[in-house]
Design a protein around this nucleic acid. Structure first.
Lengths: 259, 259
DNA sequence: ATGACCATTTCGGTATACCAAAATTTTATA
DNA sequence: TATAAAATTTTGGTATACCGAAATGGTCAT
């Protein structure tokens, strides 16, 4: 352990044994960078790292206990996905949590709808049996969604239903690349979604109907209708979102707060 | 320079002074990782790094003269974009140049068309003047394309025309996120495109017509037509591609060759 | 007080040493 | 010679030291 030559001790070695243990039987030997990535993503999505907040490598290092290398990788990943943005010209660059703006939110939802529209269209192109089976599963989820909506369930639960619905038909009908694109976009829309959870709750019946339209089109094998229905679902969400943002003001466009 | 304690000298310090010099007036102070990234991307696209070839960090380090850190970042980026893929379970992971397969090529082209379809639709939604202006520019490019096509110009030149055409309307009408998605997809389709350059050449007149259809729809402000035209352009390309791939066999699905 | 100026800290970029697992080559034994 | 075992190399993951630029904070002269 060649750190004795270091001038200041900088208590650091405390509590570190994380990686190394690569147990083969845990069935999920998560990478260190993935761990950090997931942790940060969660913090950002839930707003615990607010929009506009500085995200300093070293701060993350201190918080997570990992070294700079994996942290750096995780940050790169977040940056490419757009959850984190770098400000300042090359050679400088500070990282901040991407601000939530009207324009950006609109684009995210538009793209999400566009991609899911493609997925829905492809789902409607599946062979009859698979397609029926998928529609059945979708309706099942949507029933749960509707039921939860009627009973003032906790927002997190509602999110989960909605998320599951979308994820289901996207996964069923997409190739790996569409899946990857959608996967990198999803956390972003989710971040916005949490912002307008209030409005969403008032509008649940519409969401349920829109979902049913998607399921129905898939069941019938009507490609165009499936695509339109998926797109409409997101467009409507975007419209609702816009109202909330103008009402609440954008987030993170001001001076950065520290993490 | 604390490397005197190193046991083996490992001639390394020779010819290194690259970074550091951050001249402010070169107008483009490219990041080191970006440099490596561009270099590798180019090698992959042109096929000098063939599909399925191993891409070892240290080999890249040796070739480029940069250290592992920026190389690693560049590789991560290539990986996320799909030009490079990791094989083996987490904890191991070897990187290879993503193989070119029928299915993957199809999906890439489909997605590219889908995204550009959205861009075209948005372009057709621009205010009258901007839209006309854009259409004018597009037709100009397409004229050059057509002229070059008639004179057996070098493939590289033809690519450039085609690429410029698409880039023009995408940049004109897309938000930053769509732009980013499209930008990360483009190198991939380009890679496939080089594979079937022969077939492409035989089909240039069709490409020119398809481009004209896009420009016309944008000029008229016909959103649906613009979207369809852009999608059709890529669908046709995908069809041609498929023929070539089945004829030539997929690339890189065999044992990896070294870089 | 206020503003210019300098010391300190923070930050991302970079280079490099170390490690364990895997692959590869060499060696030794049947 | 064939094959198993051992030694070596390769590889990606990780930790960490160093650097220069920028931000920050404090001090002192006005």
């Amino acid at each position: 352990m060649p750190q004795s030559t270091s001038n200041r001790a900088k208590a650091h070695s405390a509590a570190k044994k994380r990686s190394a243990a690569r147990s083969r039987d845990t069935a999920e030997p998560v990478d260190n960078v993935t761990t950090v990535y997931n942790e940060l993503r969660s913090l950002i999505i839930t707003g615990q790292l607010p929009p506009g907040a500085r995200v300093a490598e070293r701060a993350v290092v201190a918080r997570t206990g990992h070294s700079r290398t994996p942290v750096r990788s995780a940050l790169h990943r977040l940056q490419q996905e757009g959850l984190v943005a770098s400000v300042g010209r090359p050679g400088d660059q500070r990282l901040i949590v991407t601000p939530l703006t009207d324009a950006d939110g609109h684009e995210v939802f538009l793209l999400e709808g566009h991609l899911e529209g493609l997925a829905a269209r492809q789902a409607a192109s599946l062979p009859l049996e698979r397609r029926q089976q998928l529609a059945h599963r979708l309706r099942e989820i949507n029933r749960g969604f509707a039921a939860a909506a009627r009973t003032r369930t906790a927002p997190a639960k509602l999110f989960s239903f909605d998320h599951q619905f979308h994820e289901t038909f996207v996964e069923a009908a997409s190739g790996p690349r569409l899946l990857a694109l959608h996967g990198s976009l999803r956390p972003q829309s989710e971040r916005y979604a949490r912002l307008y959870v209030g409005v969403l709750l008032a509008d649940l019946p519409n969401s349920v109907k829109e979902h049913e339209a998607i399921a129905a089109a898939i069941a019938k094998g009507n490609r165009a209708a499936a695509q339109r229905a998926a797109e409409r679902n997101w467009m409507n969400a975007a419209r609702r979102l816009a109202k909330v943002i103008v009402k609440q003001g954008e987030r993170g466009t001001r001076r950065p707060a520290k993490a």
